[in-house]
Design a protein around this nucleic acid. Structure first.
Lengths: 299, 299
DNA sequence: CATAATCCATCATAGATTATGATGGATTAT
DNA sequence: ATAATCCATCATAATCTATGATGGATTATG
């Protein structure tokens, strides 16, 4: 072959460096020792360098050899990535699963599903964004996520393909130490309206509208769910929270579920969404199926 | 060969993509068309992908082929860098010339010399730091520069090899608008001591001592030469400046050279320095010789 | 100190890969 | 209709890679 430098030679160099000798490299690579010796000599001839110091019984890497070894590792790694990409393309598997998920989606369901995905596609890297409100759709539009799970806020977006995934029950809750928790149930909206409602504010420019039912005029806004939960537990006000985030707090009675005369919990639908021009590959489809199954069992 | 993916195959893929056909690639690579055809088929078999759409007379890159082509270019470029490094090592040329220079060194000399170096070693990248005071020695010690040009401040550093390169004449100057410039020459040190002296402050932890002759108690300190020059021209005080930096300003009479009764200009020696364990390669040696020649002509 | 074990370089040979050149089919240009 | 060009196939030659045998050198072991 006319281009004398080969990936195979570089793999051999790396194997010799890692095992410490030509013979050990031969054993590792399943070849005979003389094939290793000849390949190393061929590489040295091609590069015009002595890669090994042969003064002793066993050749050791020269300084030049060490420098070239570093480049060789990089090259061989790039070749492995190229093969991996080829394999993904051949198998219609995404090179990387990129997903943006609204944190109101049950974390335990997502974790279990991603763990199963890891079993099914061991070599597939995953990139996960966990952001509320407009965040997931923004990630889709930016192209950094190929799949997103969130509530659709903007209807009529013809470029996005959305399928209903699940409904998230939200319940109004308050800290056990809050005055509202001491009142007899059910309580009226008038009473609730006098209390501070803790709500989320949008962290992206996509949508400036607030979400969730607004009952009172006294609002405290938070940028993220966890901080809002912290303030809820501290008794700063009440809010509608996804059931799965507060279940343990309700069980331990740190939070009290509020029951209203005319309206209590509601269901927020979540969708699995992708850009019509970038449908999920086999890995993404697998995950969607798995999420649906787990949600069905959990319901 | 056991590793079936080869750099040669990837070069062929790139050549086909760039020329538009197997035949044109063959002409470019000096091979027969059937060798190109077989090599592409071998690559497709190795990757398990169809890289070309063969519906028409001339195969065109498929989407998969385009994705793989991008990776191929990256790999082949890395291989070229590996070869270049091998060639540099083989020829005792540094892979990159890394140099830290005190800005009191005449810029025109350095630029001319580096331009000539570029002619002599066209493929050699250069990394240049221009910093004052302890900066160059710090760069040597950090290992990011292999050569440095600066005044030695710390004597007895046995790990550094220093050779005298040149002497830089410094002269005391002041803006034409400054009161000192209106006084009859020569002026006494007593008079000078009452004026503000603009000095450089060290920007590295290597040495905290100030340099240059300090005459008065009224000092303004600057982090870099250019800023200090700006303030000098604006009439904030006087200072000792390297002649080559102020020559044009003296000629245009924006700056006035101060003449003292007992002392005027002085010479600051500059050295070319390297760490004893990292001597310059052929390119560095070449540059040092060239700098010496140009300084001799300029003197 | 003699022997055994291990490693490397060399070499002959076989197998695999790559390159050439001939050929025919298909498409496009003239 | 003919010529030019490109590609895939195939037979063959050239080159490269791999094996296995061998001998020399070094180190470990009894």
């Amino acid at each position: 072959m006319i281009d004398r430098l080969t990936l195979d030679q570089l793999r051999i160099l790396i194997a010799v460096a890692e095992t410490g000798s030509f013979s050990a490299a031969a054993r590792r690579l399943g070849r005979v020792q003389s094939a290793i010796s000849q390949s190393v000599q061929s590489l040295e001839a091609t590069l015009g360098l002595d890669l090994f110091d042969r003064a002793g019984k066993i050749p050791t890497l020269s300084e030049a050899g060490q420098a070239i070894l570093n480049d060789a590792r990089s090259l061989v790694h790039s070749a492995d990535l190229l093969r991996a990409r080829a394999e993904s393309i051949a198998n219609d598997i995404e090179p990387e699963l990129t997903l943006a998920v609204d944190p109101v989606f049950p974390t335990h369901i997502l974790m279990e599903s991603l763990s199963a995905l890891d079993q099914a596609f061991p070599q597939l890297p995953v990139l996960l964004f966990t952001e509320g409100l407009g965040g997931p759709e923004q990630r889709l539009r930016d192209g950094v996520a190929r799949l997103a799970v969130y509530s659709l806020l903007v209807t009529g977006a013809t470029d996005l393909q959305a399928e209903r995934l699940t409904d998230i029950p939200f319940v109004p809750v308050v800290a056990a130490t809050h005055p509202l928790a001491q009142m007899p149930m059910p309580i009226s909206r008038t009473v609730l309206a006098e209390a501070t409602q803790l709500v989320l504010t949008d962290s992206t420019p996509l949508t400036q509208t607030l979400r969730g039912n607004l009952i009172g005029r006294r609002l405290w806004r938070f940028a993220d769910l966890q901080t809002r939960l912290d303030y809820l537990l501290a008794g700063f006000g009440w809010c509608n929270m996804p059931m799965h985030l507060v279940e343990t707090h309700l069980d331990s009675r740190r939070l009290i579920r509020l029951r209203l005369i005319d309206d209590t919990s509601f269901l927020a639908p979540l969708y699995i969404v992708h850009d019509r021009t970038r449908p999920p590959g086999r890995a993404g489809k697998w995950l969607i199926d798995d999420l649906r199954k787990r949600l069905a069992q959990d319901g």
